[in-house]
C-alpha cells in the first residue's frame, strides 16, 4: 500500500443538459483496497466509472487514478485500469483470444507476451477451450467471464467491475468472486459496483453508498448491514394463539399468521438461535426456518427516504437489477 490513492476524486460533477448525474462527488479509494460502490439505478455509479476510464467527459472537478489525472495524464491513468463493464462491448470481428491479444497490445504489451497473457486470462476465468470462438457464439455466462478476462489481460493495478454478477447464476458468481478475491489478495485494487449488499459484505473492505450523484456515506459492509433489519420467518408445527415472548433487545417486532411467525431483528445471523431457543422453551416445534437479510432497498429507504428500487431517469448506464433475487437470497432458497 502506498500513500498515493488508487482513486481520488473531489467535487466531481457531470451534467447531461439539466440532469446532474454526478453532483460534487468526493471519494478516495486506497491502493490495495477492495472497495464497493452501492447505489440504486441512476445513482451515478457508471458515470463515475466512465469518467475514470475516459468514456465520459467530466463537467468539472478533479479525478485521479494512482496520481494520474484522468484528463491531463489520461494515458497513464487508463493504462492502470482494467474494466469489466456492465454492457457487452466486445469486438465481434475476432475470436476471443485475438480480442484479448488486441487489448493487451493497445496497452503496449508485445505480441508474444500478449498471446501468453490472453491464454492465461482465458484459463483463469475458465473459457480457454472457447478461445477460437467469436463473442456472439458464447453463452451469457461465458460472455460475462470474457469481460473479466479482458480486464485482467493487461494486469491492471486497478480492476473495476461494474455490476459483474447482475443476472448470472450461482456457480458463475462464486467463480467470479474467487478470481477477484485472489487478485485483490495479490495487491490489485478492486472497485466493485453492485446492487447486492450481500456481495459487498462478502468481498469489500469498505463501501460507499451513492445516491443522486454523490456519496451519502462510506462505511464497512458490517456497519452498513447493522443499520438495516433482517427477517426470520418460522413455520411452527402448531398455530400459536398469540405472539410468543422474546428478548426485546434482540427482536424489534414479531407477528403471527396461522402457523407462520415473522420476526424482525437487527442481525438475523445472531438472533436466530435465541429466537429458536425461546420458541422451544415456550413449547413450540419449529418445522421450517428462513432468514432474509437486510436488503439494499431497505437501507436506502432508511438513508434517503426514497424507494431505491425505482430507476431514475437519465442514467441508462446503471442497469436495473434491484428487483432480482439477491445472491444471498438465491443461495438460501437453493440450500
Amino acid at each position: 500500500m502506498t500513500d498515493t490513492a488508487a482513486i481520488e476524486v473531489s467535487d466531481l460533477v457531470k451534467e447531461y443538459g439539466d440532469l446532474r448525474a454526478l453532483d460534487g462527488l468526493d471519494l478516495r479509494v486506497e491502493d490495495g483496497e477492495f472497495f464497493g460502490l452501492l447505489g440504486p439505478n441512476g445513482a451515478g455509479k457508471t458515470t463515475f466509472i466512465e469518467i475514470l476510464v475516459g468514456l465520459t467527459r467530466k463537467t468539472s472537478g478533479h479525478a485521479e487514478v494512482f496520481g494520474h489525472d484522468v484528463v491531463d495524464d489520461y494515458r497513464n491513468a487508463r493504462d492502470a485500469i482494467g474494466l469489466a463493464p456492465q454492457e457487452f462491448n466486445v469486438d465481434r470481428f475476432f475470436p476471443i483470444r485475438e480480442v484479448l491479444e488486441h487489448k493487451a497490445g493497445y496497452h503496449g504489451i508485445p505480441p508474444e507476451e500478449a498471446g501468453e497473457r490472453a491464454d492465461e486470462a482465458l484459463k483463469r476465468v475458465g473459457i480457454y477451450d472457447k478461445r477460437d470462438e467469436r463473442f456472439d457464439w458464447l453463452s451469457g455466462g461465458m460472455k460475462r467471464r470474457l469481460l473479466l478476462a479482458r480486464a485482467l489481460v493487461t494486469d491492471p493495478d486497478l480492476l473495476i467491475l461494474d455490476e459483474p454478477t447482475a443476472g448470472v447464476d450461482v456457480q458463475l458468481r462464486r467463480d467470479l468472486w474467487n478470481v477477484v478475491r485472489d487478485l485483490n489478495a495479490n495487491g490489485t485494487t478492486v472497485l466493485l459496483t453492485t446492487h447486492y449488499i450481500e456481495e459487498a459484505e462478502r468481498l469489500c473492505d469498505r463501501v460507499a453508498v451513492m445516491d443522486e450523484g454523490s456519496v451519502l456515506d462510506v462505511a464497512t459492509p458490517e456497519d452498513l448491514m447493522s443499520r438495516g433489519t433482517d427477517t426470520i420467518t418460522i413455520t411452527l408445527a402448531d398455530q400459536p394463539r398469540e405472539v410468543p415472548a422474546f428478548d426485546r433487545d434482540a427482536v424489534l417486532d414479531a407477528a403471527v399468521d396461522g402457523d407462520r411467525l415473522t420476526v424482525r431483528v437487527e442481525d438475523g445471523g445472531r438472533a436466530v438461535a435465541d429466537v429458536v431457543t425461546a420458541l422451544q422453551a415456550a413449547g413450540h416445534q419449529v418445522v421450517d426456518l428462513d432468514v432474509s437479510r437486510t436488503s439494499l432497498e431497505e437501507i436506502f429507504v432508511q438513508m434517503t427516504g426514497d424507494d431505491a428500487s425505482t430507476a431514475r431517469d437519465g442514467d441508462a448506464g446503471d442497469g436495473g437489477a434491484s428487483d432480482e433475487e439477491s445472491p444471498a437470497q438465491a443461495e438460501v432458497s437453493q440450500a
Partner: peptide, 17 residues
C-alpha cells in the same frame, strides 16, 4: 460499427493517444 456495438471502448479505454 465500433461505436454502434460499443467495442470501440476497447480502444478508448486504452492508453493510446
Amino acid at each position: 460499427h465500433g461505436r454502434w456495438n460499443e467495442y470501440i471502448h476497447e480502444v478508448l479505454t486504452s492508453p493510446l493517444s
